[in-house]
Design a protein around this nucleic acid. Structure first.
Lengths: 121, 121
DNA sequence: AATATTAGTTACTTGAAAGTAAGTATCTCA
DNA sequence: TGAGATACTTACTTTCAAGTAACTAATATT
């Protein structure tokens, strides 16, 4: 008899993957990191802070983060328009784990790069 | 005077991103989760266990995980060939954080799905 | 002599994600 | 009068990650 793995109880029809896919892409992570360091930030400031993101991707990523309740979007009905983004409690609770991953990456980066070079040869 | 954000000390030329990009994709995560639950596993067993991965992607993903020193590949010079894969200590130390993320996703999944539905309307 | 097994490789194709660039609305300021 | 600011949207194009399917080597098995 083969021992069955329990992993697919997590991944069957992938509800977890649905969540992780959205949290795992580079723009979402970057935006959460930025918004985790300030009270709030406006669209253009985010655009300038991140630098190499297109307006379109910034809009799209902000929308999905908002849809997941990880950030909050507040529109001030002024002209020119003002929209402020801030991280939510849920976003902060995710950010803890993301920061752990970033820390792990920083700690292990050098060794990993060495491994990669060694592997080439 | 504007306060400068420290985030780009991490992301400047993206050494962390280089690491996270490789660790963050769905196949790498799945393979690490599987290999984290067993002593070792052979190629075809991995293929059957994961199910919906192609041979090519399994090979490619195993190679990058090996290059990063997250898994170890052992070839037994037999015919037909036998190749065993096992997770390394470095891989295990990453897996801890991945599991934290999976746990977070499971805990928050329901609330996130509700948010998404609410957001549609 | 043909088929199965194992762990791949190779060449080709597809699809989704992301980039580019221009347009939009509304008011202010020079 | 027309340029600038703001937060987008839209249409089009490009890129590349991933999928598909066939092929390989060496031996054992039927």
């Amino acid at each position: 008899m083969e021992k069955k793995l329990e992993i697919f109880s997590h991944f069957e029809e992938c509800p977890v993957r649905k969540v992780l896919n959205r949290c795992g892409d580079k723009w979402s992570v970057l935006i959460l990191l930025v918004l985790g360091e300030v009270d709030n930030m406006r669209f253009n400031k985010l655009h300038k802070t991140i630098g190499d993101i297109s307006q379109k991707m910034l809009t799209v990523t902000l929308r999905t983060l908002e849809a997941d309740g990880l950030i909050k979007r507040t529109v001030f009905p002024e002209i020119p328009p003002r929209v402020e983004y801030e991280i939510t409690e849920r976003g902060k609770s995710l950010l803890v784990h993301i920061n752990n991953l970033v820390d792990w990456a920083e700690e292990n980066m050098e060794a990993i790069m060495e491994s990669r070079v060694k592997f080439e040869s």
